[in-house]
Design a protein around this nucleic acid. Structure first.
Lengths: 326, 326
DNA sequence: GTGAAAGCGCTAACAC
DNA sequence: GTGTTAGCGCTTTCAC
């Protein structure tokens, strides 16, 4: 290619890498040659000398049992992909739940096979992010980690505010016996959504509060609702911390002869596919998942550009989507 | 590393690449050195000379509107990932719907950035697979392509047999006015499922057949059902070519005062999350999605090992999952 | 501003 | 069976 443009390999390389120290003349000659030859740099050769790979590793650290509420994964990936498409960065995918696979991730980093790592759906307080940083690569996390890991930035939806808005909406509708079915309390999303419920009702008089634990799964929503109904048959609203649990709640309510939303209003969380397909359709809190993917990518790109950057968490707003159930 | 083991770089390389022509003595010395030094080969340097990248590209060619029935994507990826984890192959992910992005895929192949390509959720008769093959990389497809592309192997569920089983089940229950809501007839899955419906009823006397078109989406299922009800109010069974459409059907049936399954039995297709969350829970045809992912990976690996391999399509069995709606 | 040359870490062909 | 050697295609000093 250099010969085609009548310049040295060095100059050609300078043009390809956008160096400014090139004469307009040479610039054009090289650019023409590139177009003519359909030249594309060999990534391997480049990596060999730059010691960068232009590769981002997406680690899905998901246990078989807890499958995330589903348009989630595709949408997140779509956001990531969108943001990365304007960079030379490639996306490498790895499912890693076992400790052995986590070890593989660290190894990949340590051996310079990837420039940075994006972690999604981590459990509790996994040491993986810290280990990756120690191994020398920047990390971006999806979802607030349980134990605060100083240097690792994350993206999350504003779970507390979403829950608060939902419960306030129920209150404004005149509901006064408002129950909540919580998510697992060892996950930030579970904790924050419960906090939102509490915040919404704080200082309100004449409101009956009821809390039943769930695990984000459908069955737990059903069971929790039966429990709540037993405790307070007058119950007039349920805020569930996930759509699946809300669907379970509706089922239990129907079985108990309650009409939704007439007797009991129900609100879920996630705005999953399911929410559009229940009968009545579910009022729920939606998160900008695709946007979260984009922010995740941005967080990583920023660190790649400036390794010393200290990034703050990105908290994205949620939105109450009103359908039929409340 | 070679020096650590007191052998030449050549011998070290032979050991690393599992050549048999190495003395046990040298073998051990090198292996010890590897362990001692925590040596891992540099992938870039290796690629540079072997002209392989040990990378498989997963191209998701999905239009924004048609989101696939959802645990689909994660499960497929999980299968792929499982199968690839025992090889040195990495999985590269790319969302590519536009023609421009399709071009990028071809370019990646042509420049040797990937060794093979797996394509999922292609539209109609996309020329992409043929183009990739022409560019010199093996391809494996998910879902039977519309136009038969000779050399490109694919993995698919046995859509026809799944549909046939479902409709036969309705017939055996004594249903005699059996309708179907089809998928889009420009997709193999839509066509095959309709063929299964027809096959199940072929030659049966005293059965009323009713066909209404749908597009796999919920709304189309609802509309089709209203149409069917208008044509034949006596209708006693509906086989929908997707769970979403089945959910829409149930909604329309309920609105028309029919009870499911008492008055009208409903069966869906996909066994998506949704099927477990409708009320009554949906009887549906399940596909082994994760297994499909594994087979997809195998198809590609085989071709990578033997470029001349001529592979037959892999058709995986479906299964009727009986719940409450039929 | 540009050319020349060194070398990134590895494999493969060849000689021994 | 093993050592030697020549690149793979690129970036990056270092002279000029």
């Amino acid at each position: 290619m250099a010969t085609e443009a009548n310049v040295s390999r060095g100059t050609a390389s300078r043009v390809v890498n956008g160096s400014l120290e090139v004469s307009p003349w040479a610039l054009k000659a090289v650019q023409d040659a590139i177009r003519k030859l359909g030249y594309v740099p060999n990534q391997a050769a480049r990596s060999l000398v730059t010691r960068r790979t232009d590769t981002v590793l997406l680690v899905v650290s998901e246990s078989e049992d807890r499958v995330f509420g589903e348009p989630f994964f595709v949408n997140l990936v779509r956001g990531l992909s969108q943001e990365l498409s304007s960079t030379p960065l490639q996306l490498n995918l790895m499912m890693a739940n076992t400790a052995r696979q986590h070890g593989k991730v660290e190894q990949q980093v340590r051996n310079g096979h990837v420039d940075g790592v994006i972690l999604i759906s981590l459990h509790g307080d996994d040491p993986l992010p810290t280990n990756i940083v120690a191994a020398g690569a920047p990390v971006a996390l999806n979802g607030r980690p349980m134990s605060d890991i100083g240097a690792v930035p994350y993206v999350d939806a504003d779970n507390e505010s979403g829950a608060r808005t939902a419960v306030e909406y129920l209150y404004r509708q005149g509901r006064r016996r408002i129950a909540t079915i919580t998510g697992p309390q060892d996950m930030a999303a579970g904790i924050d959504r419960l906090a939102g419920y509490r915040a919404a009702l704080r200082g309100k008089r004449g409101v009956t509060r009821l809390v039943a634990p769930g695990d984000f799964g459908q069955a737990s929503g059903e069971a929790a609702t039966r429990e709540l109904l037993a405790k307070d048959p007058q119950l007039d609203a349920v805020f569930a911390a996930s759509d699946l649990m809300a669907a379970g709640a509706m089922k239990a309510l129907r079985a108990a002869g309650r009409r939704v939303p007439d007797d009991v209003a129900v609100i879920g969380f996630d705005d999953s596919d399911l929410a559009r397909n229940t009968d009545p359709m579910l009022t729920t809190v939606s998160q900008p998942i695709q946007q979260m993917g984009r922010e995740l990518a941005k967080l990583l790109i920023t660190q790649l550009r400036d390794p010393d950057a200290r990034l703050a968490p990105v908290i994205l707003p949620t939105e109450l989507v009103c359908r039929e159930s409340a």
